[in-house]
């Protein structure tokens, strides 16, 4: 359909206008992170850029420890979720039974349980089990939290793997284990990769359990940034530097996984 010049002009104005408005807070944070603490309190656009805040965040706040926690927890939980989900999705996609449909929908419904509804028991279980403020504790929670999404996404990908190939492998005498390892895994590697990416994004940004179940040793970046909320912590440039570093890697991941995000977050309901 040919757009009239007016439509085109409107699309440019509204499209770019909305994009710049929505992106402005992020851009402003990055900009402020290069200001000195004194300059950060004025909304000046022109200033002498400095890396002072980044140095301070690294030196004083032990930024790397929090970042490392985020990395370990996100990757650990993603790996754990995948380890559980790959066999399950395989079984449901290639050996469906009468119960498969119900199982999938039930898995989805566990995702609907509001975290705050089970905060008390989880907190007490963690306290009694010595899991409070440990990385392994968050790994378990995040893996369970994302398991339904991960199973669903893998299931969708497996559904697209041509059955003939597996059939051929089975004819050649491949056992179930071999079938998964040598045939299915290579075929669905792109699917596993993008599923993992989505899981990483969700783990990295999770801020309910991380705020409630960690304090110092296992606190990831979401909790570290929250420590800037105290009134004494009103150091805008340092807040901006820490925020920029916390957000940048996952923002790039997010840009690459837009499509999978739609599939994963709507459970295939919108394609």
């Amino acid at each position: 359909m040919k757009a009239t010049p007016l439509q085109r002009a409107l699309a440019i104005i509204f499209g770019w206008g909305a994009a710049l408005l929505l992106f402005f807070p992020i851009a402003w944070t990055v900009l402020t992170s290069f200001k000195s603490e004194a300059a950060a309190t004025t909304p000046a656009l022109f200033f002498t850029p400095t890396l002072e805040s980044y140095r301070e965040v690294f030196a004083r706040a032990n930024y790397l420890a929090f970042a490392w926690n985020s990395v370990v927890i996100s990757f650990g939980a993603t790996a754990l979720a995948l380890a559980f989900a790959i066999p399950a999705a395989y079984a449901m996609a290639f050996h469906p039974t009468r119960r498969t449909r119900g199982t999938l929908l039930w898995m989805l419904s566990t995702k609907m349980l509001p975290p705050v509804g089970v905060l008390v028991p989880i907190y007490l279980l963690f306290r009694n089990g010595g899991l409070l403020d440990t990385r392994i504790g968050l790994v378990i929670i995040y893996a369970l939290m994302n398991l339904p999404i991960v199973v669903w996404m893998l299931f969708t990908f497996y559904k697209e793997v041509p059955n003939d190939i597996l059939e051929a492998g089975r004819m050649d005498g491949a056992r179930t284990g071999g079938e998964i390892w040598y045939l299915l895994l290579p075929l669905s590697l792109p699917g596993i990769f993008s599923t993992g990416l989505l899981s990483l994004i969700l783990c990295w940004n999770e801020a309910f359990w991380s705020l409630n179940l960690t304090s110092v040793t296992a606190a990831p970046l979401t909790a570290f940034i929250a420590s800037f909320s105290s009134p004494e912590g009103l150091f805008f440039a340092k807040l901006s530097a820490a925020s920029t570093m916390a957000v940048a890697p996952i923002l790039v991941f997010g840009w690459f996984s837009q499509r999978q995000l739609v599939q994963g977050l709507t459970f295939g309901a919108v394609k």
Binding site: L22, F23, I26, N205, T222, A246, F253, G254, W255
Partner: peptide, 8 residues
């Protein structure tokens, strides 16, 4: 992009 920014 805002969707990928952590809530805190």
């Amino acid at each position: 992009s805002p969707f990928f920014v952590m809530p805190t």
